[in-house]
Amino acid sequence: MSLRFAVLSLLDIEPGSGYDLKRRFERSVNHFWSASHQQMYRELHKLHGEGLLNCVEEPQDGRPDKKVYSLTGAGRDALASWVATPAAAQKIRDPFLIQVFAGHHLSTEQMRAELATHLRQHRDKLATYQAQNARFYRRPAEQQQKLWISHQPLLLGIETEKTWIRWAEQLLARLDQEIEAQQ
């Protein structure tokens, strides 16, 4: 259900083609909601069929016509209604944390190696988020002002990754102490 409102939200900011939407999705919503290219296009077609989106075909030289989507009045109303509905807080669902919970079945070295792999991934994700954040601040001031609330999930993502990294570094230090004590 949330993909439809992610699509509506992105098109509320600016009309675009499916390709444009996927690129914008990857630079924004993707850090807290995922969807494949196929899911995105299915949702666009469904929303258009429900009368929540307009679709205008723009001719292109040597390529198929480009379909540019925008919100209809009904689409804006649906988005506004959904945004006004309270959302339940979500619990963390991370398979790696189950592995840590059952980590006593691994050697300290195995747990350390697995944790180091995840730590690299979270550091990479933090770098990606920080690059997206820098791009936000290169926008004109009026766009920053208009989109400041939409920017908040990215800032939460940055803080979440920093917290995860700090936790993992502390756990790695403890695992290193355990390994050293075993030698």
Results as ranks from 00 to 15, higher is better:
Pro15Phe: 02
Pro64Asn: 06
Leu8Trp: 03
Ile149Asn: 01
Leu8Thr: 04
Leu79Glu: 02
Ser150Val: 01
Pro140Lys: 10
Gln145Glu: 14
Arg23Met: 09
Ala127Gly: 11
Val56Cys: 06
Glu57Asp: 13
Gln145Ile: 02
Glu114Gly: 09
Arg112Met: 10
Pro59Thr: 09
Tyr137Trp: 15
Gly49Trp: 05
Ser107Leu: 03
Thr85Asn: 06
Trp148Asp: 05
His122Tyr: 12
Lys125Gly: 05
Gln121Leu: 14
Trp164Val: 15
Asp65Phe: 06
Gln121Ala: 12
Leu71Cys: 08
Asp65Cys: 11
Ala127Leu: 11
Glu57Thr: 13
Val68Gly: 04
Leu106Val: 00
His118Lys: 12
Gly157Asn: 07
Gln99Arg: 10
Arg120Thr: 15
Trp167Ala: 06
Lys125Ala: 15
Ser2Gln: 12
Ala113Pro: 00
Gln143Tyr: 08
Leu44Met: 05
Phe96Tyr: 14
Ile92Val: 15
Gly73Glu: 14
Gly73Lys: 14
Ala127Thr: 07
Glu57Leu: 14
Glu57Ile: 04
Ser81Asn: 10
Ile158Glu: 02
His104Ile: 10
Gln183Phe: 06
Glu14Leu: 11
Arg93Asn: 14
Phe101Thr: 13
Ala80Tyr: 04
Arg139Trp: 09
Arg23Ser: 08
Gln145Thr: 08
Ala87Asn: 05
Asp20Lys: 00
Glu180Asp: 10
Arg63Trp: 05
Ala89Asn: 09
Phe25Met: 11
His118Asp: 06
Arg4Gln: 14
Phe96Ile: 06
His37Tyr: 13
Arg120Asp: 13
Leu172Tyr: 00
Gly103Gln: 03
Gln177Asp: 15
Leu119Cys: 10
Gly16Asn: 07
Gln170Pro: 00
Gln182Phe: 02
Gln177Val: 06
Thr72Arg: 04
Tyr41Ile: 11
Lys22Thr: 08
Gln144Asp: 00
Ser2Val: 05
Lys46Cys: 08
Ala89Ser: 11
His45Met: 10
Tyr129Ala: 02
Ala35Cys: 12
Ser70Tyr: 05
Ala89Cys: 06
Ile92Arg: 11
Ser9Leu: 14
Ser36Glu: 08
Thr163Asp: 08
Cys55Ile: 09
Gln152Glu: 09
Arg42Trp: 07
Pro64Glu: 04
Arg93Ile: 13
Thr128Asp: 09
Glu14Ile: 01
Leu119Val: 04
Leu71Met: 09
Glu114Phe: 02
Ala141Phe: 03
Tyr19Arg: 12
Phe25Ile: 07
Arg24Trp: 05
Leu154Phe: 05
Trp33Phe: 15
Tyr137Asp: 10
Ala74Cys: 01
Gln39Glu: 15
Glu178Tyr: 07
